[in-house]
Simulated scan of single mutants.
Amino acid sequence: MENELINAVINANNAAVGKGDMDAILATFEENGALVGQPGQLAQGALALREAFAGFMAINPQISVIEHEVIQAGDIALHSSTWKMSGKTPDGHPIEQSGFSTVVLRKQGDGTWLMVIDNPFGDHLCKASGLA
């Protein structure tokens, strides 16, 4: 049951990004949640998240989770997944990316789950060292 609730948050975030719905995106994060917009670039808090996602949504990204796993320890969960993303640059050139995402979520007092840290570049160290 908890895995389904956790996966629902991830799916809601991806769907909101695809629709360009900033309020729905932010609703999947805790108030001081963080996003790794690029390796080494952390956006934390609603204002920074809004700015990071606004730039990302400019390419009209469509994100698909390929495989995923949830590890839960009490009110903390780690969602790991492989993903694919397609979009278009502002001048119309197609963009295709894929990777490995790690997301830390926390169970809220009302039983819902929200993202604390979203790192869609969880494999960047493997790629940088030639292991992926």
Rank of each mutant, 00 (worst) to 15 (best):
A132P: 01
S80M: 12
D110F: 02
F56P: 00
I25E: 00
H93Y: 11
D123G: 09
L47M: 05
G122D: 03
G92W: 05
P120L: 10
A77L: 04
S86Y: 04
D21F: 08
K19L: 12
G99A: 13
Q72F: 06
F121T: 02
A132F: 02
I71L: 14
I10N: 07
A43W: 07
N119F: 03
Q41S: 13
A46Q: 13
G18D: 08
V36L: 05
S64H: 13
Q97E: 07
S64A: 14
I6Y: 12
Q41C: 00
M22K: 09
V116C: 03
S98H: 07
I10Q: 07
S64K: 15
K127R: 14
T89A: 11
S101A: 15
T102F: 10
M57W: 14
V116N: 05
G33L: 02
A27E: 01
V104N: 01
M57T: 15
M85F: 07
V70F: 01
Q62W: 00
H79L: 13
T112Y: 01
T28N: 08
G20F: 06
L42S: 03
H124Q: 10
M57H: 13
E67S: 09
A73F: 10
F53V: 04
I66Y: 02
G40Y: 09
G40T: 04
I117M: 10
N7Y: 06
I95S: 08
V65A: 10
I6R: 11
G45Q: 05
L35N: 02
I59G: 10
E30I: 13
A54I: 08
H68W: 11
V36C: 05
V17P: 05
S129K: 01
M57N: 14
Q97Y: 02
Q38M: 13
F29L: 05
A128K: 03
D23T: 11
N60V: 07
N3H: 15
M115E: 11
I117F: 10
G92V: 12
D23Y: 00
L42D: 02
E67G: 04
Q38L: 11
G18Y: 03
H93N: 15
I71W: 12
M22G: 05
V9G: 10
A54D: 14
D110V: 02
A54P: 07
E31T: 12
I95M: 11
V9W: 04
S86G: 13
G130F: 00
W113R: 00
Q38P: 03
F56C: 03
L125G: 01
L47G: 08
Q44W: 00
L5N: 07
I76W: 08
A16P: 01
M22F: 04
G37R: 05
A27R: 08
E51C: 03
D91K: 14
